[in-house]
Amino acid sequence: MPPERGPFHVRPFARRQRDRYIARRMTLSIASWNINSVRFRIDAVERFLREESPDILCLQETKVIDGDFPAAPFRALGYEHLVINGQRMHHGVAIISRVPLSADDRLDWQANGEARHVGVRLENGLRLENVYVPAGGDVPDRELNPKFGQKLDFLERMTAWSAALDVPTLLVGDFNVAPLESDVWNHKALLDVVSHTPIEVEALARLQTAHGWVDLGRRFYPAPQRLHTWWSYRAKDWALSDRGRRLDHMWASPAIADRAVAHRVCEPCRSWLKPSDHVPLVTEFDL
């Protein structure tokens, strides 16, 4: 990959982005989006960055090896700092930022080398962890469906990691679990559907309790408010049927959660040209 340049290297569009960043430097906005192939949907990503202008964007399911990651469009928009953990055709995560990043790590919670996590430290000491939890296949039974067992094991490894955390941390990504009844379009209809089964919900609850994570989505939009981040491609009209699930999350250590001042789900992105089946989340922090 090309060498990183300073955070305020000026290009025509990047100059405007830089000026906006300087004007609001007391706040930090962090976005998370399962993009379902960053190269195929690079136009949507660029549009999102122009319209929302987050300081940091965490991507999941990038589906590209590190050497082929499309870094140039991000740098042209002023996002000079890229930390990538890629894999050909499958999985892959990345953190793209206008502010400096350091101390990156890549944890193998899947225990098989899949590219599902990347973490960084910001200059203010905040840890940012970006994760893509396995979907878990179609059958919610460990014996009949090994993928489901791998998902549960992944969550348990995350739980052990969370219990040992001793620094302020923000955990974001596609968790592939919709934990609350109001996180899905029909609780009763989805009780036996992977992503909303009681065993997955219980595993996610253990993960949350292990560190005292604060669910930022539900802090700003308390249950039972409707809050969805994913709609299947199978629906002819996703908005009309609105059979959504909240699979994407932002969780924060309590001290960081107290500094969150806004959180939004960018639902209109689901109607853009060549959309991902997920939409971005954005949280703003007063740091």
Results as ranks from 00 to 15, higher is better:
Leu128Pro: 05
Leu128Gly: 05
Glu129Pro: 00
Asn130His: 09
Asn130Leu: 12
Val131Asp: 04
Val131Cys: 10
Ala135Gly: 03
Gly137Thr: 06
Gly137Asn: 11
Gly137Cys: 09
Asp141Ala: 07
Arg142Gln: 13
Leu144Ile: 12
Asn145His: 03
Asn145Lys: 00
Pro146Lys: 03
Lys147Val: 02
Lys147Tyr: 03
Lys147Leu: 04
Lys147Ala: 05
Phe148Leu: 02
Gly149Arg: 09
Gly149Asp: 13
Gln150Lys: 13
Gln150Tyr: 12
Gln150Val: 09
Gln150Ile: 05
Leu152Pro: 01
Leu152Cys: 09
Leu152Glu: 09
Leu152Lys: 04
Phe154Pro: 00
Leu155Met: 15
Leu155Lys: 06
Glu156Pro: 01
Glu156Asn: 05
Glu156Trp: 04
Arg157Pro: 13
Arg157Asn: 13
Met158Gln: 12
Thr159Lys: 03
Thr159Gly: 05
Trp161Leu: 09
Ser162His: 05
Ser162Cys: 14
Ser162Ala: 15
Ala163Met: 03
Ala163Arg: 14
Ala163Asn: 06
Ala164Gly: 14
Asp166Arg: 14
Leu170Tyr: 07
Leu170Glu: 08
Leu171Glu: 07
Leu171Asn: 10
Val172Asp: 12
Gly173His: 10
Gly173Cys: 13
Phe175Asp: 01
Phe175Thr: 11
Val177Phe: 00
Ala178Gln: 01
Pro179Arg: 11
Ser182Lys: 05
Ser182Gly: 12
Ser182His: 12
Asp183Pro: 01
Asp183Ala: 06
Val184Trp: 01
Trp185Gly: 00
Trp185Phe: 14
Asn186Gln: 02
Lys188Tyr: 02
Lys188Pro: 00
Leu190Arg: 05
Leu191His: 01
Asp192Gln: 07
Val193Gly: 00
Ser195Phe: 09
Ser195Gly: 01
Thr197Trp: 08
Thr197Asp: 02
Pro198Val: 08
Pro198Asp: 08
Ile199Leu: 10
Glu200Thr: 08
Glu200Cys: 05
Glu200Gln: 10
Val201Leu: 00
Glu202Val: 07
Ala203His: 10
